[in-house]
């Protein structure tokens, strides 16, 4: 799967680029699902410098929300450290430790779903890394992590609009308004003004 093309949107909606190898003292890749292919492409672009880069690389990989597991591909790259976690939440303590131990010159590469990129980016920002040391590339599912603005509960892997809040049960439409602090889009009650009038759910975020 190649780079995702996004519709024109509002300015809080994150945008993503393509990962490019950059000179650094160490390299940290965090990826889920199809993001594995972006990581492979990254090292392919490095050409003759790839071996030296891999010797200073740490890859953390999580299967995607639809079950895509390409760990064998990233493992075959031969990075100094390559770790598979069953979920982002299982990987997060390791990610935070790596970020806390980081020295000047660490390059961070995030690839895969928006949820993975958003959650990992939040940890990177909290660790105080300069934002220009982080690159992101979207691959795979467009499913969203959405905060209900009413009850504050977060529903993971939302694929339809509207959807039902997994916490309070309200029918929510999904805005493009995005909070990096929450790593989530905003969900707002769609039938507040006319209770019970809910349009059919459309699969917008496959």
């Amino acid at each position: 799967m190649t780079k995702t093309v996004f519709e024109k949107s509002i300015r809080s909606r994150p945008v993503y680029d393509e990962l490019q190898p950059r000179p650094g003292t160490a390299h940290l890749c965090v990826a889920d699902g199809e993001g594995a292919e972006a990581v492979c492409d990254l090292f392919a672009k490095a050409g003759t410098a790839a071996a030296e880069m891999l010797a200073r690389s740490h890859i953390i990989y999580v299967p995607g929300p639809t079950g895509t597991d390409l760990f064998a591909k990233v493992q075959a790259l031969g990075a100094a450290q390559c770790h598979r976690s069953p979920s982002f939440w299982a990987a997060e303590p390791r990610l935070r430790k790596v970020l806390a131990d980081a020295h000047m010159g660490l390059q961070v590469y995030l690839a895969g779903t928006e949820t993975l990129i958003g959650l990992a980016q939040r940890d990177v920002i909290e660790a105080g890394l300069p934002h220009d040391a982080v690159q992101t590339e979207h691959r795979g599912s467009l499913s969203r992590r959405v905060q209900c603005v009413h009850c504050k509960g977060i529903t993971e892997n939302v694929t339809t609009d509207p959807f039902t809040c997994s916490h309070c049960g309200l029918n929510l439409f999904v805005r493009d308004h995005y909070s990096r602090r929450l790593a989530a889009f905003q969900g707002v009650n769609i039938d507040a003004e006319d209770p019970g009038t809910v349009p059919p759910a459309v699969e917008r975020f496959k």
Binding site: V149, H150, L170, V188, N189, A192, E193, D194, P195
Partner: peptide, 8 residues
């Protein structure tokens, strides 16, 4: 936050 209460 309270839109479901005042929206109607």
């Amino acid at each position: 936050e309270n839109y479901p209460k005042w929206g109607p």
